[in-house]
């Protein structure tokens, strides 16, 4: 490894740790400063009971002490127990629900890239023809349709009227279809637009003209020469897209009753289940940072011009 590469990694690692620390800090204190607490019930507990509960969960200590204890526990690989699922370790909840969230996100990512990039190419190839218009209509509709509405329409059509697919739950491969489609529509639309724009640009460039004059076939020019260069802009959005697929799945998880992490995040925030919120934040933060790192590496691999600035 060269010296520059070591420096690059050191810089990245400090950057990543600061980002994560800020994230935990913000999440922790936002949630704590919010009115209401985990043990606020309709009928108030007797004062002694309350004091005991708060003592057990360290809620009576100053906030910064609680935060530093949480950080210490994380370093030791401890995550405490959830409040809302009495005594269930946060670690267990995460281990149970993370796989479905990741499966959902990864499949949606494959679907979005697998359909979005070819459609974008097609639209650029047939620019201003009816195919292009149609693809662009799909893209702009995808951007304008909130995921819960799309989900409702899909459920109405495929479950209520046609009866082809199950409306909810996470049991058979068939029940994956609607959640994946719902989750991937927005990234799909974004990818179509990005690929189309950059593809049109590269189809006008000199090296494509050269390729034509060499007598190469259309498909070879399109897929071998133009596509590779026009994928670079799409790669930049892949980071945020992956992030949104993993963390943005909460609505889809709620609608289709999928036992995923996003659903836990929302209910935990609402119920002030501090340990669970922090646990999910830890997982999300790590995943997001990891995704971004992967995209950076991909970027370096795809665009040699980027390597100089590293």
């Amino acid at each position: 490894m060269s010296k520059e590469l070591v420096l690059f990694f050191l810089k990245r690692i400090t950057g990543v740790s600061t980002t994560l620390f800020v994230l935990f800090f913000i999440t922790f204190f936002t949630l704590r400063l919010a009115p209401g607490g985990p043990f606020d019930t309709e009928r108030a507990f007797p004062a002694e009971v309350r004091a005991n509960i708060e003592k057990k969960y360290e809620l009576d200590r100053p906030m910064w002490v609680q935060f530093s204890h949480w950080m210490r526990d994380v370093v030791h690989g401890e995550l405490k127990d959830s409040f809302q699922y009495f005594g269930k370790p946060v670690k267990e909840i995460i281990v149970e629900s993370l796989p479905s969230s990741i499966l959902l996100g990864v499949l949606a990512l494959f679907f979005a890239t697998g359909v979005g990039i070819p459609l974008g190419c097609l639209a650029a190839w047939k620019k201003n023809q009816w195919v292009d218009r149609f693809v662009q209509l799909i893209a702009v509709s995808g951007l304008s349709l909130p995921s819960y509405l799309l989900a409702s329409l899909l459920i109405l059509l495929f479950c209520t009227y046609l009866g082809w697919l199950p409306p909810a739950l996470w049991e058979e491969p068939k029940s994956l279809i609607l959640p994946i489609v719902t989750l991937s529509v927005r990234p799909l639309a974004i990818l179509i637009r990005m690929t189309r724009t950059s593809m049109i640009e590269s189809l006008h460039s000199d090296y494509i003209r050269t390729a034509y004059s060499k007598g190469l076939s259309d498909s070879k020019i399109l897929f071998k020469h133009a596509l590779k260069n026009s994928l670079i802009p799409s790669l930049t959005v892949l980071g945020p897209i992956t992030a949104n697929l993993i963390t943005g799945s909460f609505l889809v998880e709620i609608i289709f009753q999928i036992p995923g992490l996003g659903k836990h995040f929302v209910t935990a925030v609402i119920n002030r289940d501090y340990p669970l919120v922090m646990g999910v934040t830890l997982v999300y933060g790590t995943l997001l940072v990891f995704c971004n790192l992967c995209v950076d590496l991909l970027y370096h691999w795809a665009d040699p011009k980027m390597r100089i600035d590293a």
């Binding site: 945020p240 949104n244 963390t247 943005g248 909460f250 995040f265 997001l288």
Partner: peptide, 10 residues
């Protein structure tokens, strides 16, 4: 890096 909707929920 961080999704705005989750921040908004917080």
């Amino acid at each position: 890096i961080f999704p705005t909707l989750l921040m908004a929920i917080l």
